[in-house]
Amino acid sequence: MFVHHHSIPSPPTRVVVIGAGGFVGGAIVKQLTGEGIPILSLTRKEVDLLETDASKKLKSFLRPTDSVVLVSALAPAKTVTMLMQNLQMAEAVCHVLCSTEIHHLLYISSDAVYADDANPVRENSPVAPTTLHGMMHAARELMLKSSTQAPVACLRPTLIYGAQDPHSGYGPNRFRREAAKGGPVHIFGDGEEQRDHVMVNDVAKLVSLALSYRSEGALNAVTGVSTAFRIIAEMVARQFGVEVKSQPRPGPRPHLLHRFFDITNTLKAFPTFHFTPIKQGLDLVKQGMT
């Protein structure tokens, strides 16, 4: 869970967002900008973490008073090559952190670091990834923590949805795009698998809170409410006036039918923060599209 180094929230002097051009990075920049926090947005254009001079370039941007948010990743890491590229990117950041003082580091990780059967998932559930993507985040967390003296916060979001999502994976993002094209919204089988879906704006708000409290440790960015894909598909279909259609699963029914999270640590870390319920979140996303 998170331990706060500030008992009273204090806005960071400046936040350097590495990976500001992505879906999550962009939402973080928008959130912090809205709060009037000075930001340095770094995209691949300013620093390509896979280039040989990445460390040198990144170092030139950093000040000792900076809070650094690392959100840059080639995700999802589905192949060994992608895994190694992601580790190479983290290595470049670690080289800088080893020789550069910063105030705080926040890493956007993933709930993929946990074992598939860790139900309900908590921050103290064993880190036992079963995918290359999960292993990538678990390794990066450890690499970063071992490279800096600054407090390190690892935020582990589950399935993120939002208007700008680039992946269109099975879930709210794909459903919305299918519906926007006139439908139908396709679910696999009965769509009974329950998953936790978190709106990207809520992830960005948690980042802001963690920065202002200078939090250290790990926290899951999850709502604590798991919803069946079919229910979400029906919500989206109603928004657009289209139908939901079942289609055969591309593979066998998943071994882990549902995934639940216990968010007690979030309630303790940020008592006045509340996640956007899925229905409300889907409405907000639709409004963002139009």
Partner: peptide, 17 residues
């Protein structure tokens, strides 16, 4: 430890929303 926070979870889940 989990049960100790039962009331906190109920307060956030059932009351505050």
């Amino acid at each position: 430890r989990y049960r100790k926070d039962w009331v906190l979870r109920m307060f956030h889940r059932e009351v505050l929303p």
